[in-house]
Design a protein around this nucleic acid. Structure first.
Lengths: 221, 221
DNA sequence: TAGCTAACGTACTGGTTCGTACATTAGTGA
DNA sequence: TCACTAATGTACGAACCAGTACGTTAGCTA
């Protein structure tokens, strides 16, 4: 996630376009995730950087494009993680459970990403729409799900009438909600969904839920 | 939701504290839901009202307190809906399914509420924490779930080891995600989760998921 | 090593935005 | 009907904030 080596300055402040750009992105990710798009301050981002506000406009053009760049990189990280997915050697039930667990873990480990997605949804996904990269980013996870699902349905193990996109939505919704709505849920119901002590419980719960749904006996229609 | 009668002015603009207050709340709800807390403009809220910005400060004190008041009313609406819940005459399985469906419907019918909750989460639920009312608002739905769950578990129908709060989280996560993340999900995966044509599909999917989870055969531990 | 350009810094501006000082009026109760 | 107060309107200020004009320098290359 952090792509900048903290004590990188080789004595006097050398010029390093890549490092400056990356540092701005790092800080901007935190600031946008912390305060939302409109709550984030370009001056604040600059202040937390070893460079100046001028450089933000030099490299990104403006606040809007900076946020888009932040989103692009954040989605890039999750896509990379998905490409590393290795569950297809397992039987369909175990594969789906493992996939759900990895999704669970990824969401938990990247709360900033969750916040960015929430923020982007408040703004109607307009930055995704404006992005060249994000339009055609695809989702390796979706392909994996598709194949596992096909195998499970063919063998008769999976009885549910879902496709990969819907199953992905189901798994994501649980993982996403737990992190995104942690604050209000905790304030209203007095239960911290991200309490480490309850982590295993929820991880198991997610797997049980998805497997139960996929393998449930259903009335033939 | 709208608590102001649109053509209410009895000829000349009469003074009506309750109406003015309610109208500000209505407009503020829309504006905050539309643009987020920091994106919302007090001047814009005032402009969309039949009164002036002065009145916002007169009745609410400031932007922060206005947002808190908006949240309080929004949560009040959902609490009221929950109090009208009438599912306990059904058997546990049907009752839970019905409850899930009602939650599903309520989320779909109140996208503004969903957005407000997302926004409040971005800000760490600080307005809920600052609110007298919201701290002790409770949740009638939780009590209903608790009783259904007890009945189902006692009769041996429900095998899952969940309590009411966790089950509520499970049901909410699906309903919430579908509405809250509609934009990014649609942009990335090309599927509109709130498409009316798919509504029944998702409503059934939610019920199937929850019931399958609750009634699944489990290895005795 | 001279010159060129990518990279960087400073200082500023113009518009926006929350909040308020001050003035005014409708309606009510004595 | 008169006075008092809750309710309302106007006009303005001070801070904030995204964005930029202009000037500077490091480091590479011819």
């Amino acid at each position: 996630m952090t792509s900048v080596d903290e004590p990188a300055r080789t004595g006097g402040r050398t010029r390093d376009a890549a490092r400056t750009r990356a540092e701005i992105l790092d800080v901007a990710t935190q600031e946008f995730a912390r305060a939302g798009y409109d709550g984030a301050r370009v001056d604040e981002i600059a202040a937390l950087t070893r460079t100046t506000k001028r450089m933000i406009y030099y490299y990104f053009g403006g606040k809007e494009q900076l946020f888009t760049a932040v989103l692009e990189r954040a989605y890039g990280v999750i896509r990379e993680a998905e490409q590393g997915l290795d569950v297809e050697h397992l039987d369909p039930v175990a594969a789906i459970r493992r996939l759900a667990e990895l999704t669970f873990d990824h969401h938990e480990q990247h709360p900033d990403f969750i916040r960015l997605v929430s923020i982007e949804n408040i703004h109607g996904a307009e930055h995704i729409a404006a992005s060249e990269k994000l339009g055609k980013i695809g989702s390796p996870a979706l392909d994996v799900i598709r194949r596992i699902l096909a195998a499970g349905q063919e063998s008769g193990l999976f009885t549910a009438d879902v496709d990969a996109v819907d199953l992905h939505a189901m798994i994501s919704s649980f993982c996403f909600f737990r992190v995104a709505n942690r604050s209000t849920f905790g304030a209203l119901f007095g239960r911290d969904l991200v309490d480490p002590a309850r982590r295993e419980h929820y991880r198991t719960m997610l797997g049980d839920m998805v497997i139960a749904y996929l393998t449930a006996e259903r009335a033939a229609d």
